[in-house]
């Protein structure tokens, strides 16, 4: 595996590399070099199986991380190729020409994360959310609770109690609240 990393590093600039398990490694590459790396891994290094392509939203860094999970049947190792892309106007090169099922993931990411893959077949088609009008729901800033409260209604008559507050009410209601620091201007 180390040799493979060396070989790739000779080709392109590798931003990060880590070993999670004996059969699972991750590398991080530049966005522009992804296609090159993937086709090299597929055609020359035996990483022929694309297990999945998925995104992770790092909202605080304004980045999406795309993970292309590859597998090599001979050395029996999974290799995750990570790419960080900008979150606003998120766009990525399509790899539908490398794997015949990649378009499916790209269509999903387009719908659930709002990442565009120009040229990917049927990328605009809806995948699971026909008629969805909100923001792409897998983005971190989509608030599922707020959405469901807006869309559905609660079963009437439900209420709960916090043991802490309830016991205060029942047992030491008159216990004074902590004094505030009083200053000169009051």
């Amino acid at each position: 595996m180390e040799q493979l990393v060396k070989r790739i590093n000779g080709m392109i600039h590798l931003k990060a590399y880590n070993r999670q398990r004996d059969d699972l490694f991750f590398i991080t590459v530049e966005k522009s070099q992804l296609e090159l790396v993937l086709s090299h891994l597929k055609n020359n290094e035996g990483f022929t199986h694309l297990a999945f392509l998925q995104a992770v939203d790092f909202l605080e860094d304004s980045k999406f991380q795309l993970t292309y999970m590859l597998y090599n049947y001979d050395i029996r190792v999974n290799l995750g190729v990570k790419v960080l892309i900008a979150r606003d106007k998120a766009e990525m090169t399509s790899i539908h020409k490398l794997w015949a099922h990649a378009w499916q993931y790209q269509r999903e990411l387009h719908e659930l994360f709002g990442i565009n893959f120009p040229g990917s077949p049927r990328v605009e088609e809806s995948f699971v959310l026909e008629g969805w009008e909100e923001m792409p729901p897998m983005r971190r800033d989509f608030d599922t609770k707020e959405y469901s409260e807006r869309t559905f209604y609660q079963r009437p008559g439900r209420s709960t109690n916090d043991p802490k507050e309830y016991m205060k009410e029942k047992m030491y209601k008159n216990y004074a609240a902590s004094p505030r620091i009083r200053r000169d201007d009051e």
Binding site: Q20, R21, L24, F26, A51, V56, T67, M69, N78, G80
Partner: peptide, 9 residues
Amino acid sequence: IPAGQTYVK
């Protein structure tokens, strides 16, 4: 859980 990424199959 400490920060990290994994894939289990």
